[in-house]
């Protein structure tokens, strides 16, 4: 009950601020849309690959990375900023507790991220496919982009097809509701659990915020490059990658959204690792956050940074 009240308050606040500063909101969305499309289209056309699938694969990776980046950011630099401005003390004094408040805040930020990036990704996917279909079929590399989407018109594969990640599809997005919703939910919980752990540490050890910055960039890079080619690497590297919550989430989301494997994702090893991540990170994160919250009260650092 408390969670929904806080959620309602947060949604209302976010909506009011977005509406009040509508120009900033629209500009940010517009700039992100244009930048993404121009960057990816320009980049992949420029190097001559002309592969919409690869472009969308990388864009989705980047978006998942940005989500992880902002989620960990909310629990590290965001939390530090709240401590500095006094907002953290106010939130702490709400009778629903800090954990409920942060769950609601992260939910709102996730929903916003999903809405924003879905718009951007759809826009980008549509423009890349339109651009690809307008290209002349005389260039075999552009044929790939233009025809694979048609599924039956297979022509000579391009010379560099082997460089495509196994998660890359045709550039078309497959929004299967069930697997996509399950994956989003699991990604949210694994990221929130991980975020709570970082946030708890930031409550007491303020310098953790600096390490979290590195971690955020690392997560973004992992999400950008993640594919099931990971399973070809050394077992230790695999184990390390699986402990980071964003790796398997990115692999699964790419397989569903880009490859369109649908419900088959539920039998993919990365899906099990993702569940394991949720099962491990959520209780660990919450336990660490609770313990650190108590410690921070003892040290009197809730309102200080």
């Amino acid at each position: 009950m408390g969670f929904f009240l806080v959620l309602k308050a947060e949604v209302k606040r976010t909506m009011i601020i977005s509406r009040r500063y509508w120009f900033a909101t629209l500009t940010a969305l517009f700039v992100a849309c244009i930048m993404f499309t121009v960057f990816f289209y320009g980049f992949f056309s420029g190097i001559g690959t002309g592969m919409a699938g690869l472009a969308i694969d990388k864009a989705l990776g980047l978006i998942i990375g940005i989500f992880a980046f902002s989620m960990v950011g909310m629990f590290s630099t965001g939390l530090a900023g709240m401590a500095r401005s006094g907002e953290l003390e106010q939130v702490y004094m709400s009778p629903h507790g800090l954990i409920t408040n942060f769950m609601a805040r992260s939910t709102v930020s996730t929903i916003l991220s999903i809405v924003t990036w879905t718009v951007i990704l759809s826009f980008m996917s549509a423009s890349l496919q339109r651009a690809s279909s307008n290209e002349s079929p005389s260039n075999p590399q552009t044929v790939q982009a233009a025809t694979v989407d048609g599924a039956t018109n297979t022509t000579t594969p391009p010379a560099n097809a082997s460089t495509l990640p196994s998660t890359a599809g045709t550039g078309k997005l497959h929004a299967d509701p069930l697997p996509v919703s399950v994956l989003f939910l699991l990604t949210y919980f694994s990221m929130t659990g991980f975020g709570f752990m970082i946030g708890g540490l930031v409550l007491v050890f303020k310098q953790v915020g600096q390490i979290a910055v590195l971690l955020r960039f690392a997560m973004m890079a992992i999400a950008w490059t993640a594919s099931d080619a990971l399973y070809n690497h050394h077992i230790i590297l695999q184990a390390l990658a699986h402990t980071i919550p964003v790796t398997d989430a990115a692999i699964c989301l790419k397989l569903v959204l880009l490859k369109g494997i649908g419900n088959d994702v539920f039998t993919h090893p990365s899906f099990f690792y993702l569940i394991l991540n949720v099962a491990v990170w959520t209780p660990i994160g919450l336990a660490i956050f609770k313990a650190m919250e108590n410690w921070a009260r003892g040290k009197g650092t809730l309102g200080a940074f």
Binding site: L5, A9, K12, I16, Y21, S94, P95, H96, N101
Partner: peptide
């Protein structure tokens, strides 16, 4: 960024 009325509504919701 909120008005006094919106502030009261926000904190009221936070506090049940």
């Amino acid at each position: 960024p909120l008005t006094p009325m919106e502030n009261l509504s926000y904190f009221g919701n936070l506090r049940d």
